[in-house]
Design a protein around this nucleic acid. Structure first.
Lengths: 165, 165
DNA sequence: TGTGAAAGAAAGTCCAT
DNA sequence: ATGGACTTTCTTTCACA
């Protein structure tokens, strides 16, 4: 696959603005990056279609919606064979309160982010896992607070490769 | 502070839609939740001002922007006194590639999410930390892949409390 | 690629219910 | 609190540099 045109400075500033405010008007966005609306719109569409912009989504307040407790969980499986891993991932996928799950390396196989309305609910959710056949070890890290939540730093100039790379 | 009106079913569906597509048109959103645009717009503004919607942001593709490597890091400090913790948080805040940082409990004090262009860059970034005076222990978990990334499940009916609670 | 103008669509306001 | 009608503003297309 041949690489596409690299992003220029304007593209990168568009990404930066959209990361801060995903609902910014095209007009306003165009003004901020120093061009007019039509090419700005074309660039935004390009950035979406080439996958630089994965999604634009509302971030909700977990606590106001009744999820008082967040916990990170490290899981180590008994067996790391493919079937075991896929079975575990399928189990996780089916439980809505496990919001995110990453395959990792190091002294655990998965990292999970989990929410619950109360510590009691959380305890029960995690106990389910202790019961799964292939789970060897669970370490949990209740979140006391968020001390940083920053946007991805946008690099200076040449950022591009083919999405299929 | 007195609690405000609880959210009704329409509000919750609005949240759900915006979590999926933060740039949805008010008309379209209104149609999906079964009302017309004006009240829908008022509800969205209410949900923003009361803090249920924290932000609407573009999610960018880290890899396409040159960050090939993501690592979670658990940090244990020597001292958990307030000054030490705040000093650590200030250090983290100053480094752009540490995207997120949570204060946690369990056998570590902080959980970090860190990105870098290469494993070599990542190693250098993490080595900086090994040198900090108050850091006792660092465990890192390179991300092999994302196996789940789901939206917050929206509860069924009564979700409301005062933002200052 | 960028610009300016024009058509079309949406957002936002007002008022009656 | 909602919905209809209105006004204003933006988005989007097009022709052209």
């Amino acid at each position: 696959m041949t690489d596409q045109q690299p992003l220029d400075d304007i593209d990168l500033r568009i990404l930066s603005e959209l990361q801060t405010d995903g609902r910014i008007r095209i007009n306003e966005l165009a003004a901020r990056v120093g061009i007019t609306a039509p090419p700005c719109l074309r660039r935004v569409r390009m950035l979406r279609s080439r996958g630089f912009i994965r999604a634009i989504r509302a971030t909700l307040d977990e606590r106001l919606l009744g999820y008082e407790v967040t916990t990170f969980v490290l899981i180590q499986l008994e067996s790391q064979n493919l079937a075991a891993i896929e079975a575990f991932e399928a189990a996780i996928a089916a439980i809505p309160r496990f919001l995110q799950c990453w395959r990792i390396s190091g002294d655990a196989d998965f990292m999970l982010k989990c929410v619950a309305p109360s510590v009691d609910d959380m305890r029960q959710q995690l106990l389910q896992f202790a019961g799964l056949p292939n789970v060897r070890k669970i370490r949990s890290y209740p979140v006391l607070g968020v001390s940083k939540d920053a946007a991805l730093p946008i690099p200076d100039a040449p950022a591009a490769r083919s999405p299929a790379a």
